[in-house]
Design a binder for these strands. Structure first.
Length: 160
DNA sequence: GCCAACGTTGGC
DNA sequence: GCCAACGTTGGC
């Protein structure tokens, strides 16, 4: 029997890594997550083929810009061992890595981005458990339910 | 184990 | 650039 497909939302600052960058490279290890909750989602719950909303944060128009998919099983984030990386973690060792990640693969860019401002207008529909529009939401990797996925996708191409 | 101080996230 | 919200750190 097929496992039901899972959905996620992953944030990235486009100056750092954008959906266009992902389109160019095809697949990218999702390095630099240093939040335990976000790590746990990647380590414990993601499966190859899961669908991902690619969200641009810290930018002029924050919002969902594209769709990606989980492209690997979890493995240790190599940047935690790299002294020269800004993500270096002195407490992590090869034997006991702290930070796990998955590879993310390009699926498509949205015809038109779905701005956060538009997403907020659907807060009620999306429900309490939608992390993105919670006050002070800082989680960079979060689950999205099938119904939330549908609602959000239906906003593609809608005027903001 | 508490909690103040600090650093970071991320919208505006 | 500002600053609220939040997670983490470290002194006690």
């Amino acid at each position: 029997m097929n496992k039901p497909k899972r959905y996620w939302l992953m944030k990235s600052e486009p100056e750092d890594f954008s959906i266009d960058d992902l389109e160019r490279v095809g697949t990218e290890p999702w390095t630099g997550v240093r939040n335990y909750q976000a790590r746990n989602f990647m380590r414990d719950s993601m499966q190859v083929g899961d669908q991902v909303f690619f969200y641009h944060s810290n930018t002029k128009v924050p919002g969902i810009y594209g769709i990606a998919q989980v492209a690997s099983t979890p493995y240790p984030d190599p940047t935690q061992f790299d002294r020269k990386s800004k993500y270096y973690d002195p407490k992590a060792t090869e034997e006991e890595p702290r930070w796990m990640l998955v590879d993310v693969g390009f699926v498509r860019k949205l015809r038109k981005p779905i701005p956060l401002s538009l997403i907020r207008t659907r807060s009620e529909q999306l429900g309490e458990d939608f992390h993105l529009v919670r006050k002070g939401a800082r989680l960079s990797v979060m689950p999205v339910t099938a119904s939330q996925w549908k609602i959000l996708l239906s906003l593609e191409g809608k005027p903001a």
